[in-house]
Amino acid sequence: MSEFVDFLKRDTSASFTDDRVAHFGNPEREIETALANVSKCPLLSLGVVSFTGTDARSFMNGQFTTDCTGIMPRHSQFSAWCDPKGRVLYIFTLYIDGDRLYAILPKAQIDSFMRRLNLYILRADVELGNLSDALIVIGLSGTSSPDTTGLDEPWDTAQRPGATRIIRQGAGPPRFMIVGPDGSARERWAALEIPAVGEIAWKTLEIFGGVPRLDERTSGRFLPQQLNLDALNALSFSKGCYPGQEIIARLKYRGAVKKRLLIATVASPTEPVSGTPIQINGSGRTVGHVLNAQRLDAGRSALSAVVEVDATVADLHIEKSKGPALRRIDLPYAVD
């Protein structure tokens, strides 16, 4: 067990679910705190994969949706990896520290991510490493902490004491990820003298930020534009080839994006699961599916969903046309 996890279990009120800190005693209040004020969150569900070798950057550039030549010490990237049909398999944050490149993504996806990538390395000088036990990710919301000084734009990145990196996340409520060694994570945590929240609150921030996340039910199901990755600067149309590029480019230059990600709340006693159908009231026709959802309180959940563009102004309901109605929320970024 990591030193930081041992500390959280021994010396805090952290409530664990599936090896992550779900909350610190009151998830509903923590959601309110995270949305309104500065807060910190142990992101134990996230792990880190390293890319080393002389061909690491060019290999990544030939696989991922962003121009990886643009990853710099002061600028990270939101990126994705697609299958040959252009469907998104994984979504992650890329950053550099010294001569190593890194990807931050859910620990549950790392084994399959590395296994699939290794099939494409062939003779390239690239080595992948799972550093999830060595590096800890801490989330920080709000901008009142001195650690966030100078990080004004999405994916701005800075070095901080103790071999740590702090990376500003994308649109929506200000969010940052602090990545550093497990051995000094407790010290970093204690230095942040702000309220602690669990991953329930952090997931809510991401949903309201219009950030897509994939699981086993949604991986390989959507094109990048359907997840708004183009609007989140996680998609390059000017670099060389990568898996699915022709299909993705054709959607931009020859066609129209017929589905887009939206965010909403829904009055429901249970949290919708990913993949739950969305229908137009009274029609019985499925026009989309839930991507992510998080229960806000006893009778309400926040969710993101991929829905047909022509149906986004309709009266939408989950599960069936007479099910709970969606109350749409404006995205915090522009979508073409």
Results as ranks from 00 to 15, higher is better:
residue 151 L to M: 10
residue 45 S to N: 15
residue 288 G to P: 09
residue 139 G to Y: 02
residue 221 R to G: 04
residue 319 E to M: 14
residue 115 R to L: 11
residue 34 A to G: 04
residue 8 L to T: 09
residue 160 R to E: 15
residue 79 S to E: 08
residue 53 G to Q: 12
residue 231 A to K: 09
residue 93 T to P: 07
residue 249 A to R: 08
residue 72 M to Y: 11
residue 279 Q to I: 02
residue 316 L to F: 08
residue 14 A to V: 02
residue 125 D to I: 10
residue 44 L to D: 09
residue 311 A to Q: 12
residue 197 V to C: 02
residue 178 I to E: 00
residue 126 V to S: 09
residue 44 L to W: 04
residue 291 L to C: 06
residue 195 P to H: 02
residue 79 S to H: 11
residue 190 A to V: 00
residue 151 L to H: 09
residue 217 R to H: 12
residue 179 V to P: 12
residue 130 N to K: 09
residue 308 E to Y: 08
residue 183 G to F: 00
residue 123 R to T: 13
residue 8 L to D: 06
residue 322 K to C: 02
residue 265 T to V: 08
residue 307 V to Y: 10
residue 122 L to V: 15
residue 272 P to R: 00
residue 245 Q to D: 12
residue 123 R to Q: 10
residue 315 D to Y: 14
residue 277 P to A: 06
residue 153 E to Q: 14
residue 165 R to F: 01
residue 157 T to R: 12
residue 50 S to K: 12
residue 97 D to C: 13
residue 72 M to L: 14
residue 260 R to E: 11
residue 309 V to D: 04
residue 225 Q to A: 14
residue 320 K to W: 07
residue 164 T to R: 03
residue 25 G to E: 10
residue 291 L to R: 05
residue 322 K to Q: 09
residue 265 T to Y: 06
residue 126 V to I: 14
residue 323 G to E: 09
residue 205 L to P: 07
residue 31 I to E: 03
residue 210 G to N: 14
residue 72 M to K: 15
residue 35 L to E: 04
residue 207 I to L: 03
residue 201 A to Y: 02
residue 335 V to R: 15
residue 287 V to L: 12
residue 192 L to E: 01
residue 189 W to H: 02
residue 328 R to M: 11
residue 207 I to W: 01
residue 180 G to S: 03
residue 278 I to R: 05
residue 221 R to P: 04
residue 57 R to M: 13
residue 273 V to Y: 07
residue 69 T to W: 15
residue 59 F to Q: 08
residue 206 E to G: 05
residue 64 F to G: 06
residue 79 S to W: 08
residue 51 F to G: 06
residue 118 N to H: 15
residue 55 D to L: 14
residue 83 D to F: 12
residue 315 D to G: 10
residue 45 S to C: 00
residue 195 P to V: 03
residue 325 A to K: 12
residue 103 A to W: 03
residue 239 K to M: 10
residue 192 L to S: 02
residue 75 H to Y: 13
residue 129 G to E: 08
residue 242 Y to R: 07
